[in-house]
């Protein structure tokens, strides 16, 4: 289950892990991807209602036959969303590896203390 009541790490460990250089690196790496990705998708997404709402004549411009800018821009949102998801999926494997490494070190240190 997601949360065990009796956590294996004593309270002090959380702070120690959180303060460790490796954990800081992991958090920074996550932020370096997630913050720009979030800003990018929010900006790209809201460009659609803003342009449709405030520049309807521009968006009515036919591009391919009768198919207008409004429809093509809306359609592009699907591919943009899939692209960001794909990029995140690729990056996240790296975060997983870093997280596993931190856990392994924690276990090793605890093992050392006990023996």
């Amino acid at each position: 289950m997601a949360v065990n009541q009796d956590s294996p790490a004593p309270p002090g460990d959380w702070d120690r892990v959180a303060a460790s250089e490796e954990f800081q690196k992991l958090q920074a790496a996550r932020r370096r991807f997630i913050i720009p990705a979030t800003i990018a998708f929010i900006v790209y997404y809201f460009a659609l209602p803003v342009l449709v709402g405030y520049a309807p004549d521009l968006m009515k411009t036919p591009v391919i036959g009768v198919v207008n800018l409004a429809y093509l821009f809306a359609l592009s949102q699907f591919f943009a969303a899939w692209l960001i998801a794909f990029l995140y999926l690729r990056e996240a494997d790296r975060f997983d590896a870093m997280g596993k490494h931190i856990l392994a070190q924690l276990e090793a240190r605890k093992g050392g203390e006990q023996s």
Binding site: F41, V52, A85, Y88
Partner: peptide
Amino acid sequence: GYDGFLYSVGWLVAYLTVLLI
């Protein structure tokens, strides 16, 4: 027409919030 299609767009993009955050 088109205005309805905007629901489709928003409801997919919503999953980026779920995924990233």
